[in-house]
Structures are given as C-alpha cells and as structure tokens.
Amino acid sequence: MPTSLAPVSIDELKAIAKRIRAHIVEMVYEAQSGHPGGSLSAVELGVALYWNHLRVDPANPDDPDRDRFILSKGHATPFYYAVLAERGYFSTELLKGFRKLGSPLQGHPSMKALPGVEMSGGSLGQGLSFAIGHALAGRLEGREFRCWVMLGDGELNEGQVWEAAMAVPHFGLGERVIALVDRNGIQNDGFADQIMRTNPPAMFAGFGWKVIECDGHDMAAVDAALAEAERPDERPRVVVAHTVKGKGVSFMENNPGFHGKAPTREQVELALTEIAEGLA
C-alpha cells in the first residue's frame, strides 16, 4: 500500500475532473434519474482526494491497510461511481448500467457490490459513525489507514452527524478520521439557508475540530486543503469546501431543481459542450 503518492499535476487533475463531469451528466441522462447537482459540486474534492491523497490500490480494494473513502452523502453516486471507474476500480463501461435492473450500480451505494464501495448509503448522516468504527478497528490492529468521509451540507441537519462529530475527538481519532463537507448550499427542498440554516465551520469548530475552508472548485486550493488536513494536529480536521451545486453546467448551477432530476437530450448536449469548454 503506497504511503505517499506521486503527485498528479493540477492540470492533469482538471482534465480528470472534466471526464468525471461528463460521466455524471451522461449517467443521469441514461438512467433518467439520479442526483446530478450534488455530484457535480463534489468533483474537485473527489478528484484531488482519489488521485493525490487517498492511499489506495484499486487492484487490491480489500487491502486492510487501505485508506477508506466513505461517501456519507450517498445520493452522489454518479460522482462516486465515475471517480471509482476513472481511478481504475472497474470499467467505465459499467457506468451505463447506473440505476438499471441487474447492474451493481444501484441508485445509492451498496457495500461491496462493486470494488471500492466501502459503505451502503442512501440514508443520510451515517458515514462519520461508520468511519469511527473503521478507525477504532484500525487502531486496535495497529494499522495506519485514514478514513475520509464526505458529507453534504444538507446532511448536517441529521443529529447522528453530531453524535459522531463529538466522538471523533473524544476517542482521539483525529489522525484517522478526516471529514469533507461539500458546502453547496442547496438541499432537496431548496436553498439550505431557507430549509435549515447551518454554519458548518462554526459547528465543527464548536465540537473541537480544526476547520479548513477552501474554494471547492479551485483544484489547487482543494489539493492544498486536503494536504493541510493530512498534517497532524491535536484536533481532528474537517475541510469545508465552498462549492456550487451543479458546477460546470450553466443551467444546473445553483439550481435546486437539479438536485435529483435528469436532463433532456438537448440539455445533455449543451452540458457536455460546456464541460468540454471548461466552464468549471
């Protein structure tokens, strides 16, 4: 298991991010359902993490020493499956089966149905707790792996997140559990400030975490934030990435209507053009 990765250049990461975005749009179109908005907002976080920070070997997905990536915002499967496929866990051909009968690419992740899928998801708020379990097991067995947990900002409404947030510092797991918040400001029913106002940096800080904020679509900034999160500190670290829901596709950006809705064929063509031209 690699303990350090040969860094991938920011330009290369940006090129990968474009491919991920194109997959997301095509998958949701093909399935005629799914969650494009919160997938597109998470792309830079996921790409910088999987290519430059997550200590994994896609050819050996069950290595007990691997870093874990735990997708707590389980509806972001278009993003998740596309990242896993591009990272080499399985063929990108499988992405065409997303949400279809007989495909292992369920609408929300099913643990071990696919290589690299660490946790079953779809009911929000559970990932940080699951990561604590992995981290405690890792410490008991003297393993060094870290658990990176991606949460949505709407998901922070769930009380279980805070049960877990208080437990991470209590158990001294700051070097083993790192949280990532995709702060896109929109949840299922609308803008987060109107549905349930939260202040993720202040809330995590109040629970004893070191908060690292960044522009979640500036690849260099995201990469630097993740590197800072890896540096030891007496507090556990959370990266709050300020993002735009639907990022990279003009008509999806900051549009609550595309939280869980598929585009039309014409919209797909426009979206793919915009992604190729690098609106993001």
């Binding site: 007990p64 559970q126 940080l128 707790s129 699951f130 604590i132 379990g133 992995h134 405690l136 097991a137």
Partner: peptide, 27 residues
C-alpha cells in the same frame, strides 16, 4: 481495550459497530 462507551448516542453506536464489523470484528 475491547469496550467503548459512546454516551447517549444509540445511532452513532450502531454506525461504529458497523464499521468495526466491516473490519472483521464481532461487534
């Protein structure tokens, strides 16, 4: 070394147990 208490937080307890079990423990 084999016992934890999580405070009044049953949901977190279940999630932690699931993570431990995923790593091969009998939780």
């Amino acid at each position: 070394e084999r016992w934890y208490t999580v405070g009044v937080a049953e949901q977190n307890m279940v999630g932690i147990a699931a993570g431990l079990a995923a790593c091969g423990k009998t939780a």
